[in-house]
Simulated assay, not measured.
Amino acid sequence: MKKLAILSIIAAGAISLMAADGAALYKKCAGCHGAKGEKKALGKSQPIGGWDAAKVEEALKGYKAGSRNVYGMGGLMKGQVASYSDDDIKAVAEYISTLK
């Protein structure tokens, strides 16, 4: 029984380590959007800090799909999020929603 409990704890730890880290993913974004999402990216976009997570997730999925091109940033943003999985998008969206 103890072995099963220990294996469960190890597995839970491994899963949490594999989970997307929104703060780490956001570092790629901060150059244009600012550390707190306070900047207009390349002087064009709205500041994104504090956006609702669902709004960010929808925007990022649209950019990734190539169906969103707000402020002419579609191509640039598509490249930025191309490698993000759905879990990555969700994690970075949650993180951005906490920025103030």
Rank of each mutant, 00 (worst) to 15 (best):
K2Q: 13
K3S: 11
L4M: 12
L4E: 01
A5S: 07
A5F: 05
A5N: 09
A5M: 12
L7W: 10
S8R: 08
I9R: 01
I9G: 02
I9E: 08
I10R: 00
I10E: 06
A11N: 09
A11S: 08
A12F: 12
A12N: 03
G13F: 07
G13I: 04
A14N: 09
A14D: 07
I15F: 10
S16N: 13
S16W: 12
L17Y: 15
M18A: 15
A19Y: 13
A19M: 15
G22E: 04
G22I: 05
G22T: 02
G22Y: 01
A23E: 14
A23K: 13
A24D: 02
A24Q: 12
A24Y: 05
L25Q: 08
K27G: 10
K27D: 09
K27I: 03
K27T: 09
K28L: 13
K28M: 11
C29S: 01
A30V: 03
G31H: 01
G31E: 07
C32H: 07
C32W: 10
H33S: 08
H33N: 03
H33K: 03
G34T: 08
G34L: 06
A35P: 04
A35D: 10
A35W: 08
K36N: 15
K36V: 12
G37P: 05
K39T: 03
K39R: 11
K40N: 13
L42M: 15
G43A: 01
K44C: 04
S45R: 09
S45D: 10
Q46R: 12
P47V: 13
P47N: 15
P47A: 10
I48C: 07
I48Q: 05
G49S: 01
G50D: 10
G50A: 05
W51Y: 14
A54V: 11
K55R: 12
V56D: 01
E57F: 11
E58F: 15
E58M: 12
A59H: 06
A59K: 14
A59R: 11
L60W: 06
K61W: 12
K61P: 01
K61I: 13
G62V: 00
K64Y: 04
G66I: 06
S67C: 04
S67L: 09
S67T: 15
R68D: 06
R68S: 06
R68C: 03
G72A: 03
M73T: 00
M73D: 05
M73H: 06
G74W: 06
M77I: 00
K78G: 09
K78E: 02
Q80N: 13
Q80E: 07
V81P: 04
V81G: 00
V81C: 07
V81R: 07
V81A: 00
A82Q: 09
A82N: 09
S83V: 12
Y84F: 15
S85D: 07
D86T: 02
D86S: 07
D87K: 04
D87C: 01
D88H: 02
D88R: 04
K90Q: 14
K90I: 05
K90N: 10
A91G: 05
V92Q: 11
A93K: 00
Y95I: 00
S97V: 00
S97P: 02
